[in-house]
């Protein structure tokens, strides 16, 4: 999934995967902070955002 999305032009790092057990609070904090930092560095998303009004 990551492979194809990055292949079509998603910035690497915007989509991230992790496996965190409910007992791994520390890992959750670490991953959440790291992801937030990396995505903030990429800036606002440019792709796959609908700008026009949705017409059914």
């Amino acid at each position: 999934m990551k492979g194809l999305l990055e292949h079509i032009g998603m910035e690497p790092g915007r989509l991230q995967f992790s496996w965190i057990s409910s007992a791994e609070a520390t890992k959750f904090v670490e991953v959440a902070q790291a992801v937030a930092k990396e995505v903030a560095a990429l800036g606002p998303a440019k792709h796959l955002i609908k700008r026009r009004a949705e017409v059914a």
């Binding site: 990055e6 292949h7 079509i8």
Partner: peptide
């Protein structure tokens, strides 16, 4: 063909597929 797209930077890739 896939490899040549892989060489592009993200913006170029997006432009190509768009």
């Amino acid at each position: 063909d896939v490899e040549s797209i892989e060489q592009m930077d993200p913006e170029k890739k997006w432009a190509f597929f768009a």
